[in-house]
Amino acid sequence: MVSSTRQTLINLYLSSACSLIAGLSGELPEELSLLKHLEDISIQKGSIKGTIPPNVFKIPNLKQVDVDKNAMSGIIEVREESSVQRLDINFNKFSGSIDFLTLFPNITEAHLDNNMFNGSIPESLGDLTNLRKSNCKIIIDATISAYRF
């Protein structure tokens, strides 16, 4: 049997968690890139819009970016090689090419499915020798054909 004090604490925790879910919105702020020691950004299952600020990918030891199941859109801009090892952007509305993947030389997992990517598969994707788990459906050259890798 749960004591009344413990039950109160459980209720407080659940109440807090619910208010967090209800308010998860807006765009990923540039201030993320001021956190120079960040390794893991996991902001999932919300209503986040906009794209990922390019400076985020410059964080020196960033290993994971997981924005799975949001409402993010636009192209993903990576300006220089990034340390990201795991990228999960499933179930968003990102568009453009997936060329940015070639700037993640250490990437092991890329989850890109259920977005609006198009274009060709970059040849240099084969250079990503650590990539062992990936999913992506890409509309090639705006035709209805799709390619899975």
Partner: peptide, 19 residues
């Protein structure tokens, strides 16, 4: 803070927000 993960040097290494 509940959503923040730090290392032993009290440097923020993770942000976790989810359902």
């Amino acid at each position: 803070w509940l959503e923040i993960l730090c290392d032993a040097k009290s440097q923020i290494i993770g942000i976790k927000l989810s359902k």
